[in-house]
Design a protein around this nucleic acid. Structure first.
Lengths: 268, 268
DNA sequence: CGCCGACTTGAGCAATCTCAATCATGGTGG
DNA sequence: CCACCATGATTGAGATTGCTCAAGTCGGCG
């Protein structure tokens, strides 16, 4: 998309661990990845990007490893390279609430500014995961020098806001069945009406993400069988994406008597 | 906090409506307000701020008026001067979901960038409300020129993210009673253990904000009477803020048998 | 006085949770 | 190869929460 010249300078150090964990699921690329490939940096100027590349460090985590902890000082900007990361908040009571699950190319945690800021969430690897980190102090200084980087960070924040708003809408306005239907729809590869794929992580996590208990999720899957969704353990088969999309509206509303249901109002 | 010199240049045009709606609830200030007083602009450089002031326009809305509509082109950056603004999302099905309620000093909608962006939510005045607007194109150009403005926008976005995360946590992890208790706690003026105040908007809206039906809210208020919360129509009296805070943890969990409940785990 | 809107209250119902049992799967050790 | 265990998933039954529908209260206002 953007200029590719000078990309050598944009490479970040690859992890040196002898066994790179399972091949990346990205499209088959034999080129080494560059910062430019990351959504966040797509339109950042080359100068800044090559300086950033010097600071970048790749870190790998195994399943369940803590990437950072709520309350810790923000020492780095973190971007998921591959794998999935659980973002969760821990209440003073000790309950953990899953806020979101981030994957390839997404930033996690906050873009730091004022030194001495602390994380407002924790992040934990789901399965083997690698992330890219930039020292917070350097990054925020560069943000102040490069409008294109700053702009990129704002754009990234906006995307995050949009995602959170969608999540709130989902939680407030949809029941478990609808939430699952939408989740499945979001996983379907675009362009095909009939599709089959593997769930990205286990059902316990999916349940937490959708804000329901595991058992409820299981029953929701059962109900979706009527809508052409088969599941075999971890694989999902959707008979017709378009049908599922249209039916998932009806999964809500209780059967209405044949009187006209004209009014609807409040936002809850 | 920051430099106050040159603040004359930072004044924005006041609305000329003869009757300024009810006195602002901010601390008693007789000085005309300046951009500097707004959280968003607290640490923006004077140069940028005075240029921004030239572009600023105050607009007033009456109760229920639409400030902008989901799907419309983002033509301006909008900041609430006083009053409350309902931020809501409208699904394709037509249901409206209240996302948040913003008040004095908060930005609403998205900071624009790429021209031709559209709002992802609608905004509507609750009661008489005034907002400050900056043309989107100018604002985003200035963002690219002023790191301190850009930084301020990032900070603002971060605050918004934090608020949304808190809302998600609330929706996923608390029941109606706890949500109301926390809402009330958030309204209590700091520093006093015993307090009395007026609800900022009507109970229908509070219910929508907390993600419950009006009736449920009413019952939640009833239950909070046991925790020292009296209500008279629109006024709330909290006997002891600290007691309420400590008790609202217990509002959740169903009564446990006197066996030890050591483990707790999942995030739903 | 009578109406209207906002709020409250009651009764039954639906969605979800809790608890508990069962089942499938995969790995492990004998 | 198989018994066995651990983990995740499913299913059932009953408790709980919150919703729906409907009626009733309260306060203001013409």
């Amino acid at each position: 998309m953007a200029t590719q010249a000078g990309d050598n300078a944009l490479r970040y150090a690859q992890p040196r661990r002898g066994r790179v964990n399972r091949r990346s699921s990205r499209a088959t690329v034999s080129e080494p990845p560059t910062l430019r490939d990351l959504q966040l940096f797509a339109s950042v100027d080359n100068e800044t990007l090559s300086r950033l590349a010097l600071e970048a460090k790749v870190e790998s985590f195994e399943d369940g490893a803590v990437i950072f902890r709520q309350g810790d000082l923000v020492s780095a900007i973190t971007i998921v390279l591959h794998g999935y990361v659980k973002v969760l908040r821990i209440a003073s009571s000790g309950d953990e609430t899953l806020v979101s699950i981030s994957s390839d190319g997404e930033t996690i945690g906050e873009p730091p500014f004022n030194a001495s800021e602390t994380y407002r969430v924790s992040a934990e690897a789901i399965g083997p995961t690698s992330v890219l980190k930039f020292p917070a102090s350097r990054f925020s200084r560069m943000m102040k020098e490069s409008p294109s980087l700053c702009t990129a960070v704002v754009q990234d924040a906006k995307d995050k806001i949009a995602a959170l708003i969608t999540e709130i809408e989902t939680l407030k306005a949809q029941n478990a069945d609808q939430r699952l239907a939408n989740f499945i729809l979001s996983l379907c590869p675009p362009g095909q009406d009939h599709c089959r794929f593997r769930l990205p992580y286990d059902k316990r996590l999916i349940a937490a993400q959708l804000g329901v208990k595991q058992e409820t999720l299981s029953r929701a899957f059962a109900k979706l069988r009527e809508c052409g969704v088969r599941t075999e353990t971890r694989d999902v088969l959707v008979e017709s994406v378009s049908r599922l999309a249209s039916q998932c509206g009806q999964l809500g509303r209780p059967p209405r008597l044949p009187s006209e249901s004209s009014d609807r109002e409040d936002a809850a």
